[in-house]
Amino acid sequence: MHRFANPARFTRIADRVLPFVAVAALASLGIGFYLALFVAPGDYQQGESVRIMYVHVPSAWMAMFIYVAIAVASAVALVWRHPLADLAAKASAPIGAGFAFLTLATGSLWGRPMWGTWWEWDGRLTSMLILFFLYLGHIALMHAFEDQQRGYRAAAVLALVGVINIPIIKFSVDWWSTLHQPASVLRLDGPTIHASMLWPLLITALGFKLYYLVLVLLRIKSELIAARLRALDLAKLSAT
């Protein structure tokens, strides 16, 4: 792991990998959206409104996945002081916040015609809203201190404490079965969703994941340059 700690090495590897990941992301997003819009059937209960699922569910998966990634990076940063771990967490948080927001917004747009309400204080909805606030708190803490390392440490602690919310989101539909439907893909006895909907969903979800990979590589690269700029500014200050 520490072999990738060298910024120059990281940038070199990222530059080599990025074109391939970007093409793969574009392809799977293109195919996924095409299948979701033109090939997948309407739902026998929900009609065409079920097409919202193809952006809602991958967004929700990404919001949770990115949060776990940030928590892992934070643990690595706190325990081993790996220099790239803080930057990976910092680079990921705005993307995760974007997906958490999309989950809430598309969920609301789906809930209105299906449940008759934009919002309900249901267990799943509330815990997802908390996830969104955790992201905002993480971003705010990262920038809250003059001493950057202190901000990174505070944000890492928040990320680790907040990770308790992830299993709560996952199991909220079983614990409080008020409004949101239970899992139909990630369940122990296998997916209950029909294959004609499962495949478009999985391909779109893969596209979302690859999109995140592209963005996080670009943003870590960008953070490394920012760190270099700060070092150069300091050197200039001390020279004059």
């Binding site: 309407g42 065409e48 409104s49 919202i52 952006v55 809602h56 917004a105 598309t106 747009l109 015609p113």
Partner: peptide, 16 residues
């Protein structure tokens, strides 16, 4: 028209 759900489906995709 999205089976009458256009006002919900397209904003979802657009926002994403």
């Amino acid at each position: 028209d999205m089976g009458g759900y256009a006002a919900f489906v397209w904003p979802s995709l657009g926002l994403t």
